[in-house]
Amino acid sequence: MLRRSIAVELEVTKELNKLLHSVETAYLNIVREVVEYAVKNNVLNATQLHKLFYHKYRDEYPGLHTHLVVQAIRQASEIAKSFVERRRKGLAQKPYPEVRSVSIRFVVTAWSYEEFVKSIAPVRLSLSLLVGRRFEVWLRPHKRFWRYWWRVLTGEARLASTLIIKRKANRWYAVFVFEIKPREEEPKSIISYDINENTVTVNRIDLPSTVDKVADWNRQYMVPELYTIKTDFGRLARRYERIRNVIIEKLKPEFALPSSNYVNVTNTREFRKRVKHLRERVRKVGRVRQIANELTKAPAIIITEELGDNPQESMIEGAVKTS
């Protein structure tokens, strides 16, 4: 099932803004402390962390709603697991993860969206922030939100039970998660494809969709439609490789050793700070989505090959052997 997250800005008053800031601060403190303990003592199970810290933080933050304490501990468990996994793979250099910001999660019993069906615009949320109190806040819905909400009303999608409240640039946003039900349609064609360095070759055979085609079956319906989609993945990879090499050469003098060698620049913070602004991943993902959209415009049976876990390495090895 596909999921789509839609962020909608909240219209908060000054009093509610202060309250959200205080709740976020308490939530962040809980996450940071639990994460540090979990990584240090290798206690990653959310249930064990709940038993260790729940009563402590209920006493420390008596006004904070119970579900927020529970969600903060669970979120800390997820962060700790992710950090330990990255450290095991050699992708994390720090002893502890640095938690700079958090997203406040609300379970289904801690927020209300019944107003959605009754209201036209704008809509209103009801949030449980403090013990025994609910706070109402207005939304600023936009076109994308209404498009997915219409799918909920028509039964094509379902709203997830968890709501996320997040602050960005001193503005508060409610993040709704929509679970989109896949459409079931009769396939109209069979598609196979071959991925090359800079192109994707597509072979499409249209299936008979009417009784007349079945009755008048002949060879013309078996003639495949063969075409290629230009991706330029190879050129894109080489281009960004040249850009990264230029960055490495510029940073090398700053990391020179007395033995006239250099520190591995790619492991430095300065290199990562510059590389993160490159749009290589975004462009590659965008092109992949364009190809997927092209192949799935009409319902079809798609035939794929077994590429394995790391197809790039196998393709490189095959190219080396043939050369």
Score class of each variant (00 low, 15 high):
287 R>D: 00
101 S>E: 11
161 S>W: 05
131 V>W: 05
204 R>C: 10
212 D>E: 15
135 F>D: 15
89 K>N: 11
252 K>F: 08
50 H>I: 05
214 V>R: 10
33 E>I: 00
223 V>H: 08
228 T>P: 01
38 A>P: 11
46 A>H: 08
293 N>V: 06
8 V>C: 05
284 K>G: 03
237 A>M: 08
212 D>A: 14
152 V>E: 00
49 L>R: 03
208 P>E: 08
206 D>S: 12
200 V>F: 03
262 Y>G: 06
84 V>P: 03
237 A>W: 07
221 Y>K: 10
57 Y>S: 12
11 E>D: 15
144 R>N: 10
306 E>Y: 12
21 H>V: 11
186 E>K: 14
73 I>M: 04
256 A>M: 08
280 E>Q: 07
173 Y>F: 10
209 S>R: 10
164 I>A: 05
47 T>R: 11
210 T>Y: 06
173 Y>C: 02
226 L>I: 15
80 A>L: 02
150 W>K: 13
200 V>D: 02
37 Y>R: 02
45 N>P: 07
119 S>W: 01
209 S>E: 14
225 E>Y: 07
160 A>N: 10
26 A>Q: 15
9 E>T: 09
211 V>W: 13
200 V>P: 00
249 E>F: 08
150 W>E: 11
163 L>R: 00
101 S>C: 06
217 W>T: 10
11 E>N: 14
291 I>Q: 01
16 L>M: 05
240 Y>I: 04
16 L>T: 03
69 V>G: 04
263 V>K: 09
264 N>Y: 11
28 L>D: 02
319 A>V: 08
114 E>L: 08
313 E>W: 12
119 S>N: 04
115 E>Q: 06
275 V>D: 02
185 E>D: 05
241 E>N: 15
169 A>N: 14
238 R>E: 15
143 K>H: 09
272 R>K: 14
75 Q>T: 07
296 T>L: 11
101 S>N: 13
76 A>I: 01
144 R>F: 10
185 E>M: 09
267 N>E: 15
222 M>P: 02
50 H>D: 08
112 S>Y: 06
198 N>V: 03
16 L>G: 01
56 K>N: 13
152 V>W: 00
74 R>D: 02
142 H>N: 12
106 F>I: 06
101 S>G: 09
59 D>P: 04
279 R>S: 03
150 W>H: 13
53 F>L: 09
67 H>G: 11
231 T>E: 07
30 I>L: 00
222 M>C: 10
155 G>F: 01
200 V>Y: 03
174 A>P: 06
257 L>H: 10
294 E>K: 09
250 K>S: 13
270 E>K: 13
154 T>P: 00
91 L>D: 13
113 Y>W: 08
177 V>M: 09
248 I>N: 05
234 G>V: 05
170 N>Q: 10
53 F>E: 12
196 N>A: 02
118 K>F: 01
48 Q>D: 13
273 K>D: 14
231 T>K: 07
188 K>D: 06
261 N>C: 06
79 I>G: 01
14 K>V: 06
5 S>D: 12
23 V>F: 04
250 K>D: 12
256 A>W: 03
266 T>K: 15
309 D>R: 15
188 K>A: 05
44 L>W: 03
83 F>C: 01
91 L>S: 08
293 N>Y: 04
276 K>T: 05
199 T>S: 02
151 R>H: 04
246 V>Q: 10
218 N>R: 10
227 Y>F: 14
216 D>K: 14
21 H>C: 10
145 F>K: 00
